[in-house]
Amino acid sequence: MGIFVQTLGFGIAAGAVISLGAVGFTVQFGISNVLNITYGAFMTLAAFLGYVLLNRGLDVWVVLVAVGVVIAIASAVFNRVFLSPLRGRGAGFVNLIIGTVAAAIILQGVIVIAAGPSAVTYGQQYGKTVSGAGLVFSLAQLIIISITVALMFGLHLLLTRTKVGRAMRATSTNRTVARACGIRTERIIDLTWLLTGFLCGAAGVALAVTTVTFDFSIGSTFLIYMIAASVLGGIGQPYGAMIGGLVVGITSQLGAAYWSPAYQDVVAFCILIAMLLIRPRGLFVAAGVNRRNLSAT
């Protein structure tokens, strides 16, 4: 039982980082209807920007916010300069995905040119451990979990209690009707890319804090977990993605603890496939837990 509880804690810590990234990814998809594969490359960029700022002596949490802002602007610009024109010229859903894949490869290549192929290290940040009730967390993990929860709560308030949030949900549901109702959908989409870009940047730095050392492949490696969390929760649903991230984190840690760490991802993805077979549209859509579906579908 002790190992189980401890592993649960490890899974929550790993899942918090996945959740942070997955929520941004799924909200971005839900509102702008773009499955943005460049998201992983932006996370890598965030991790490297964080490395540069850390070496200038800034505190890691200041770095997380600063990098989040930079990636937010970069994401919004990316949407405006690249994706919006593509959409304007009639690029379909698949073409947009291919476009983001190409952009991800280019961005990753630029990062390798600028930073090299070698791994870089954040070092242990807030590594002191806190334990209780069989759970062990580092201070950094507790802060990341807190940041994730705070951002999720903030996102929840934004979507449910503000005019902008309602406009975002309306845009997500039907952009044409939203526009006819007087919502400036392009502005809403810009705002979405800013918001989700911030989450992407924060997730990139949080991930680098967790892994301690990383290279240019960090974002693309973890993108698959974020997509899995999004799909698990029901694509386009922020709350679903958050739970999905936790499920992926916990199952992979349980797989490592009770079976083999070499197959920890196999366990997580087997559960994903099983869930999809039972609830093809995702855990929360089928269960009807979350009525605030941001998906345009």
Partner: peptide
Amino acid sequence: DIPGEAASYAS
């Protein structure tokens, strides 16, 4: 045996 480049090896 562990996989390379995982987010967490805590378990």
